[in-house]
Design a protein around this nucleic acid. Sequence first.
DNA 1: CATGAATGAGCTTTCATTCAT
DNA 2: CATGAATGAAAGCTCATTCAT
Lengths: 219, 219, 219, 219
Amino acid sequence: MTSKRRTPKTPATPARRTPQQDRSRAMVARIVDAGQQVLITHGYDGASTNRIAAAANISPGSLYQYFPNKDAVVAAVIERYTREVADRVRARVLSNLGKPPEVSVPETISYLLDALGNDRELLRAVVEQTPRLAADGPVVAFEQQIGELSRVALSMGHYPIPDDIDTDAAAWMLVRAVEHLTIRYLLDAPPIPRDRFLADLNRLILNFFRDPRPRAERE
Amino acid sequence: MTSKRRTPKTPATPARRTPQQDRSRAMVARIVDAGQQVLITHGYDGASTNRIAAAANISPGSLYQYFPNKDAVVAAVIERYTREVADRVRARVLSNLGKPPEVSVPETISYLLDALGNDRELLRAVVEQTPRLAADGPVVAFEQQIGELSRVALSMGHYPIPDDIDTDAAAWMLVRAVEHLTIRYLLDAPPIPRDRFLADLNRLILNFFRDPRPRAERE
Amino acid sequence: MTSKRRTPKTPATPARRTPQQDRSRAMVARIVDAGQQVLITHGYDGASTNRIAAAANISPGSLYQYFPNKDAVVAAVIERYTREVADRVRARVLSNLGKPPEVSVPETISYLLDALGNDRELLRAVVEQTPRLAADGPVVAFEQQIGELSRVALSMGHYPIPDDIDTDAAAWMLVRAVEHLTIRYLLDAPPIPRDRFLADLNRLILNFFRDPRPRAERE
Amino acid sequence: MTSKRRTPKTPATPARRTPQQDRSRAMVARIVDAGQQVLITHGYDGASTNRIAAAANISPGSLYQYFPNKDAVVAAVIERYTREVADRVRARVLSNLGKPPEVSVPETISYLLDALGNDRELLRAVVEQTPRLAADGPVVAFEQQIGELSRVALSMGHYPIPDDIDTDAAAWMLVRAVEHLTIRYLLDAPPIPRDRFLADLNRLILNFFRDPRPRAERE
DNA sequence: CATGAATGAGCTTTCATTCAT
DNA sequence: CATGAATGAAAGCTCATTCAT
């Protein structure tokens, strides 16, 4: 599983990056791969630097040439995962910018569910094993990216947003709600069909923008 | 083998606690106090049994007379916290059972925010420092209690719930949304006023029960 | 299993020993019983004082009223066992005093094998788990008793002992040989039938007293 | 994963040891030395890994790079000792293969006495302090080696062995008798001159092979 | 740069023993 | 005397990190 390919001596590509840098990048990736695998199989406490180094087929000393300490490796694992998910979701959001929310919201949520669920083991490891790094780590960055995106999307939707809505506050809340509910659905596997879950989550988000329940509606 | 004989002095009286039991309870409380404090100040990884014992002013050996291992202490800390919060929230929910959701939901959420925010440092320690100790740990138990409560409240609301709603699925989702958003609001302290946050959260929940956006409303 | 019988208030026997002493003796026996059982099931290192006390249905503190420390309990277990074996063997040896060695030696050895094999688990525990106490403990006393006995038996056999034999040296050697070989036979269970083993051991001992192999016998 | 590549500089030469291996061997020897010394001075229970590491002038962690646990160190101490003794005795036995038992047996026993007595303190530590670490531990291996040897020696003696002797059973018994008596003589230091002891032990062994005492001899 | 042996502080846990009740 | 909670020294062992080669 770990990359045994060595950078070919004479690459065809007009080497923009130094071989130096290539080797270094490859090494970092190798370590992150190893860290991810170990994190999944052994959990945070079982992810010793020795084990990660062994899984990366390098010496423990070498690991410290690329990362200052153990937590940096774990953080890199998380960062890479969230970046991948965020990239994919962002692309989808952008491609839906012009569409009405009844279309774009379900599309986005469905895609997020797929993206997060793509590696459920890793998701579980990240969420359940590494809260200790969460302080202002990569997960937060992830939310900020998506939050920013949502705010843009909200403001560009060619439909009226009720006056009583604070875009920033709403984005903060909805992003976190969607993210958390999706993760919990994936990890806790409640006895709720996927379609039902998606329908409810969409309803939650979309109904938020409706006018507060007018008196008349009751009774 | 340990003395199960109770002093038969006053057999009819509703169990005045033996000094034995009192001492034991006090000791457990002392250890949980210490564990809580250490968890807050040193985090999960820094919460060594020796440190907890020292903080409780007992010997490391004594700790093991009351808890089988370190995680049991941490679990007790969490359990006590979630129980306290759950107890207070449950009381409030029950006292609002007859009222319409426009009243009971804001009341409950506001109260939950207060209850959780009562010890923000502990909340942070529990949420950000503590790995999932068990699949059926105290946090999960907490959610199940509140979830059960919500389902009851929903069904007793005396007002029509749209046909297209699955009570269980809705309860699962809304409970987790409220819980998580409240916690994040408390821990991340986003630049959103409390009133705004509460209003939005209430809107999120209450609007969920409205009919899906009818055709007419768009445009 | 442990004795729950309490010393009857008014014993029929004309109480020579104080109830005090009786209680004390009973207690010691109870502790030794417990120690023996724990030694067998948990080994020396697993025989904690707490476990022994629990097995004796007393508190750990009480144990120290009867024994100064853990090793004293273990020593008492060994002492009682070896004393019982020695008593039985001694009786048999004495009853064979007049008989020729061709009769008395097999009788004694066979009886020793039975006596030692009576509680093979205890024998194993004593031999394999408690060498650390062997210095000049009860096992040594056992050998001295039997050795003394043997010397007496040797000197009272109404048959000639060759001049070149030092009775003390011979007794020292033969006693240890018989003891050790019997124990090893019981514990290691080599693929040797009991009869064969006994015959060989008797041959070893009895032939010892023959004249050193004369030249003539060879070729 | 650990470097199994050998420097291919001189492929034909009969494996000059890498410095790697030398260092490792030296370290193991150092730890075994330390373990031996600590075992002698503090006994098995006092032979903590920290103490052994300190005696070896290494850190406790280093010890675990060479031995998986404490008992492995103790086992290595015993193994080295028994191997040394066995090697020396085996050499002597082999060089006596052709000789008659009246010569080879005394020679072997005398040599065994010397070999075992070479480090009486260690012998005492091994015999009196060390619990049976495993059913197939070094002591047992030692006996099997010597037993095997004896059987060979017996069968090559070129002189008649009585028909009524089972070679395996006899070897089992005699080996253990010689071993145990020699050890006890060294450790208990009974008031028996060395010559007397050797003479008696030889007599015990050699006489074993004589015909069972014929009728005529009695009386 | 890579290595991996070496480090040593620190961890969780046990248990013989004591002593206030 | 009996109790058993409390002790605390010490055990075996791990692992993030360093540094000489």
